[in-house]
Amino acid sequence: MPSKTTNKKTDQTTGRTARQLLPALLAALMLTATAALAGKHGAVIEEGKSLTFDRKKGNCLACHYIAGAVSPGNIGPALAGMKARYPKKEDLRARIWDVTEFAPEAMMPPFGRHKILSEDEITKITEYIYTL
């Protein structure tokens, strides 16, 4: 009995290995690709974060609260729950680019229109803020 079972198990294992070799390989490949993508995305978010915090760049903390940041201002709204506030990421980006298009009296500098930040920098900042 036990040997049979063992045999069966072995058979099964061998069979599984043979039959699932391709999908497993594919899965492994996929994981690597996903990790690479996530890593790249993660790097963009990290860059976005440092641009957000940099006083000479976004300097967002001058006016906005971000959880965990040191001595943020409170002139603008806290940066939290961004996905709920802007289901579309591009809506958030458009406001960073020039908020006065949406709220003519708003104080926030038009980071894109006045070229305070480059398009690439705005994209990266948007990626980071969208995670908040």
Partner: peptide, 12 residues
């Protein structure tokens, strides 16, 4: 799945 691959391939 396919989308992910496509997304990964695009930047390249």
């Amino acid at each position: 799945m396919k989308g992910r691959y496509a997304a990964a391939a695009q930047p390249r």
